[in-house]
Simulated assay, not measured.
Amino acid sequence: MNRDIIALVAKLVLLFRNPESYKRFLACRDADAQQLLDLLQDLLDLDSFSAVKPLIFQALMRLSRDSGLHPRCFSLPELHKVGQQVTGGGFGDLWQGLVCGQSVSVKMMRVFKNAHIDAILKEFSREALIWRQLCHPNVLPFFGVYYLENRLCLVSPWMENGNMMDFLTNENPCNTALHSEILDVALGLQYLHAQNVVHGDLKAINILVTPSGTACIADFGLSSIADIMTLRFTHSTSYVQGGTARYQAPELLRGEKRHYGSDVYAFACVCYEILTGMVPFHELPNDMAVILQVIQGKHPSQPVMCRNTATLESLWKLLIDCWEENTDSRPPAPQIVERLAGSSIGATPTLSAAKDWDETFTSKFRRSLQAQPLLPSVNQIEHILFGSGWFIFEVLFVLN
């Protein structure tokens, strides 16, 4: 079977690299498109093919966008809301829910004017597609999608500890624990950037805390594949160029595109929140005042708690470097992790007796809800490849 799957992936890659074949592939609709999306997602769920997964994922993204469909494994069975709305964001409201007795977080799309519905549905679908591919101890897993009250929902595990600011308020951890939480966030960011994902909206309320006390990055509503132009909405006042103003790098405030360096800038703002318990530029009355300061090259001033010890001075120096005006001068995520774990700061990842989730967490949850094999049957694959007219000629061409 492994040999057959390798042969199938090789044929798909050749088809994707042929402009005419790729164009016809993207023109698939309805049942053909659905089967292809299911196949591509199942291939992405395998541990193999890391070298060509970006190509497969790009094909999945584009076909999903053009067809208006997503892989069927994203769809969950009956979901129930529990209690009151927890919070709201730029495009969605957050509720607690239940799926098959498991407590989950439900991000429900808000109702907008008809003119915006298609664009926002595409944004939510894009978030789901990106999120589904991610698996790391410091990145919140994705369970699937659900339509509730005619509104699209993105479903993930419920984090009882809440976001980072809730956790810090309730637990009041020591400096060593704070440094561990900061390193957790840096490890999650390093992973996202290694996957070519720009988060785009890093802030403490988008950092959740797992049952073991580990920090994990959540809310990918503004994340983007680094080399793909992202949608921008004009109906929200909560964001400036796709992110909350107090966490925006100066180049974003000047209208430039989000990138890895802007995530690094926002990471330093998250560190400031974790260390002080206050938002960046908390002394300024509104976002416009913050924007004026940032454009002038200002950054948050050093708090008292970041003085008087070599460790805290080293940590503050790292934040200063992350806030550099010149984006090329900001340290990349791997260097941030190295400096945090180095002898001058000495941060260690949050320890836990057991992992909160492993590499197969989301797929295990999926299989517990849907009795289906990881890959389609041989008959299904034959139908996908040979059932529509253009594919049979393309595959025969490749075989020859």
Rank of each mutant, 00 (worst) to 15 (best):
Val13Gly: 04
Ser75Lys: 06
Pro77Thr: 10
Val82Cys: 08
Phe49Val: 05
Pro54Ser: 13
Cys73Leu: 12
Arg62Ala: 12
Arg72Val: 03
Ser64Gln: 08
Arg24Tyr: 11
Ser21Trp: 08
Lys81Leu: 15
Arg29Ala: 12
Cys73Ile: 08
Leu44Ser: 09
Lys11Leu: 09
Leu43Asn: 00
Gly68His: 08
Ser50Pro: 05
Cys28Asp: 09
Leu40Ser: 06
Ala31Met: 05
Leu60Asn: 04
Phe74Leu: 07
Arg62Cys: 03
Leu43Ser: 02
Leu76Cys: 10
Leu12Thr: 01
Cys73Val: 07
Leu76Gln: 04
Phe16Val: 05
Ser50His: 09
Tyr22Arg: 15
Gln41Val: 05
Ser75Gln: 12
Gly83Pro: 00
Pro77Gly: 07
Gln35His: 12
Cys73Lys: 05
Leu12Asn: 02
Lys81Pro: 03
Asp66Glu: 15
Phe16Leu: 15
Glu78Asp: 15
Glu20His: 12
Leu39Pro: 00
Leu60Arg: 08
Phe74Ile: 02
Ser67Val: 05
Ala33Met: 11
Asp66Ser: 12
Leu12Phe: 12
Asp30Gln: 11
Phe49Glu: 07
Ala31Tyr: 03
Pro54Asp: 09
Pro19Gly: 13
Arg17Thr: 04
Asp42Leu: 03
Ala51Asp: 14
Pro54Val: 09
Ser64Phe: 01
Tyr22Val: 06
Lys11Met: 13
Asp66Ile: 10
Met61Gly: 04
Glu78Arg: 11
Gln34Glu: 13
Arg29Ile: 05
Gly83Ile: 06
Arg72Tyr: 00
Val13Glu: 11
Arg65Gly: 10
Asp42Gly: 15
Leu40Cys: 08
Val52Trp: 03
Pro54Phe: 07
Val82Leu: 15
Leu63Gly: 02
Phe25Ala: 06
Leu39Phe: 04
Ser21Tyr: 13
Ala27Cys: 14
Leu63Pro: 01
Ile56Ala: 06
Leu37Ile: 11
Leu46Cys: 12
